[in-house]
Every structure is written in structure tokens, then in C-alpha cells.
Design a protein around this nucleic acid. Structure first.
Lengths: 211, 211
DNA sequence: GAGGGCTTGTGAAATCATTCACAAACTATC
DNA sequence: GATAGTTTGTGAATGATTTCACAAGCCCTC
């Protein structure tokens, strides 16, 4: 398959959200134009995004909402469930561990880990924080594909090294640090400070604000 | 000024982080190549990013670390402080309210709001959760430029309408919903589910994984 | 102050992403 | 089954971003 841009994948995820909304409203079919309107993009963009993966619509009719949901879920890899470990049971880690949105979309949190003895044993909903030292053994056993990193910046790289060595193939990094992963491991980072700084840039340069 | 790509602003924020690290290590000058190495980009990219805003280096020598920090902070609008209100004192909102990284970078949380009476009055570090109903009055008084939205998806749009109407000029949305803002307001969204879905896509399509 | 060794700043080229525009394909109606 | 009215799928065109490549400028040594 040709290389797919991240922006395309991001939009597919967005379309999926709208499609699910349309489905609960009982709408059976949808045109690229309608979908574009919800997502703030153009109909050509919607069709192009989908065209990388096949053709899912009917000319003259549009897309079957239910079918397209199925197709996009398949494309994104959501037709199966994924196991996630959360590393760091501080404020952010704990909040994510209890976030319903994950489970709803097929991401099962199978473990939460912390180094701090005072956090170990704490129960977050139905999951108990475990000791950092158990990480490798648990990864061997539970085979999570994804690790979500919610630790202080200076601890981040060492933990990524440990979890990728133990077999984790994707990392979502909330730690305020740039980390590196071995080839073959997918990495994404969410940095609160950077997000705010982009807003500050927008506020400081009003003449060229996009929206 | 010509339009600046978001990717450029994002990288500037990243460079700033590395420069601060280099400064604490006592390094006086740095070349675009060194900076590129830390940030996982190329020296030409670093120079091009900076060139949109002026010329900050010395040929043959590189950039003065301290000077470049100052210049990038100025570019991003971090030479002043910004006031932030957090809306929603649930898990994520509370975690953000207590996140040190914000204050450190000149983003002052001046208010945290919730609708739920059982959350109102709760103290998060040195700030007390206030009633949702106080929002407009407080925005008039404290003039925050930025609102961080941490509420359930179905409450998001109504709250954005309220805060933008009251004068907030930038919104960082953590709510799992697509929201719209009036012209002239900067919007950014962080959607945990989308981030995980992009990882799932990467896991499902290993043949074309970037890293 | 001339020459060697670096490194910047920046047009030009190349690559990547979005938008355009239209033939092809479908439904519904007569 | 022919016609009108839609909407898809996709090459081509446009626009945006990144990379290339090199002249210009600076430091240091002799």
C-alpha cells in the first residue's frame, strides 16, 4: 500500500465519530458532502481519504452509514481489541486509567504501573496500580500492544526502552520529553505545553489566525 | 507576515525545550545541526523555520543559546504571561489544574469551574473550584485569554459559546467532540481516542510505519 | 589581511497534500 | 428502457511544505 498521511488517518477517525452519530440518529446513507460538513473539510477530501483504501460508496447514492462505519473501523484496526498499559499513576495516568472513552473503543487497560510505593495498590475503578518492577513480567504475560506514558519527563526514555524491549509496539507519550523508539515501534506524543504554546502563538499573531 | 504553518510553530516549541536543556548544561552556542539532531529533524528545517521570523544566527558559529531562547519565546508569545481558565473539574480538568508545567511556562490558571455542586469548593493545590454560573462574571473580571475545556462531549459546544462570547480568544479542547468557534478565536483539540486510533492504524499497517 | 574551515540564510527543486473537475455509475421517474 | 438528477472515484492541477545546494559571512590561524 502507498504511504498514508497522518492527516488522512486523523480525518478517518473523525469521520468515524460523525458516522456513529448519524447511525444513532437512524440515518442510513450519507454523502461525502454531508460528512465533510460535519468534519469541517471538503467532499473531495472525504472521497480522496477513502479512496486510498478502496471504494465504499455507490455513485448517485453516497455511502451506507453502517457499512462505512464497518469499513473505517477495519481500516483503522478497530475490528479487534487492543491491550494498553498505562505507565505512571499520577494525576494524568490515573485520569486516563479511568477514562471510559478507551474501553468504549476497544482499548482495554490491562495494567497501570507506578514506581512510588504510596501509589502501588491504589484502586482506579476496577484496576489496581501495580509496581513498576512487575512491568516486564506483566508485558510478557498480557502482551499489551500499546503503552501510554504518563511519567515525569526525566523518567520517560528509560521506561520506553523497557517497554519496547519487552515487546510493546506502540507508545503514546504524555511525558514532557522527546523520546526515541526502536524501528518498527509507532510513537505519538501529546505535549500540553506545546499545545498551549501554539495557542499563545495564535494569540500573539492575530493577523494570520486560521479560524 | 506570511502565513506560518502549524508544523513550524510546533517545532519552534520543541526547539525551545531543547535549547533550555542546553542552556542549563551551560552550552553557549549551538548549530542548526545539533538542534536538528535533538528534535529529530534536519538542519535545513531548523534554519528555514527560524528564517520566517528573522535571522538569529551567526554564520560560521551557530546560534547563541540564550539569545535564541529569548527570540523563540518572543516569537511564540511567551515573553508575557497568559491567563487560563479550566472548565470542568473532573479527572482530566483537575489533573491539568495541578500540572506544574503550565505555570512554569507562563500560563497562569486563574479559575477552575464545574457544574456539579459536589465538585464546587474542592481545592486543587492553591485554587478552588468555582460554580459554572460564575464563569461569565469571572471572565469579565479576570480577562483570561485561554480556556481549556475538560467537560463531557455533549456539554462542550455550549460552554465554548459562552466563553468565547465572554471574551476568551483561544480554546484548547479536551472534550471528545468537534466544536466550532467564532472567527478570530484560535482553537486546538486533543482527542485521546483519536490518538489511540492513529496508533491502532500504525499497528495494523506495519509495512508502512514511519519510525 | 589572506586562506581554510564552518555554519547560516535562502532561492530553487523536489516532495507531499489538497482541491478541482469530470467521466462513470447509480436511482427514480416516466 | 430512456432521461434527468445525483454522487462517487480519480487523474490532473494547484498549493504547501520540506529538502537541496550554495553563496555569503564569520572565526581562527598564520
Amino acid at each position: 500500500m502507498k504511504h498514508i498521511a497522518e492527516s488522512t488517518v486523523r480525518r478517518l477517525s473523525l469521520y468515524l465519530r460523525f458516522l456513529e452519530e448519524f447511525e444513532t440518529q437512524g440515518q442510513a446513507t450519507i454523502s461525502s458532502g454531508e460528512l465533510a460538513l460535519s468534519g469541517g473539510t471538503t467532499s473531495a477530501q472525504v472521497r480522496k481519504d477513502l479512496s486510498f483504501f478502496g471504494s465504499f460508496g455507490k455513485r448517485g447514492l453516497g455511502y451506507g452509514v453502517r457499512d462505512l462505519i464497518g469499513s473505517i473501523r477495519e481500516i483503522l484496526g478497530l475490528h479487534r481489541s487492543w491491550s494498553v498499559v498505562i505507565i505512571g499513576a499520577g494525576k494524568i495516568g490515573a485520569a486516563l486509567a479511568q477514562y471510559r472513552g478507551f474501553t468504549q473503543r476497544g482499548f482495554n487497560v490491562v495494567g497501570v504501573y507506578d514506581k512510588d510505593p504510596s501509589r502501588i495498590g491504589v484502586t482506579l475503578d476496577d484496576i489496581t496500580v501495580r509496581a513498576d518492577a512487575e512491568l516486564e513480567r506483566d508485558i510478557q504475560r498480557l502482551k499489551p500492544q500499546i503503552a501510554v506514558l504518563c511519567v515525569p519527563g526525566d523518567a520517560a526514555q528509560a521506561l520506553v526502552d523497557r517497554v519496547t524491549k519487552a515487546g510493546v509496539k506502540a507508545v503514546l507519550n504524555f511525558a514532557p520529553a522527546q523520546i526515541h523508539v526502536p524501528k518498527g515501534v509507532t510513537l505519538r506524543a501529546v505535549n500540553m505545553a506545546t499545545e498551549l504554546e501554539i495557542l499563545a502563538f495564535g494569540l500573539s499573531h492575530p493577523e494570520e489566525r486560521a479560524s
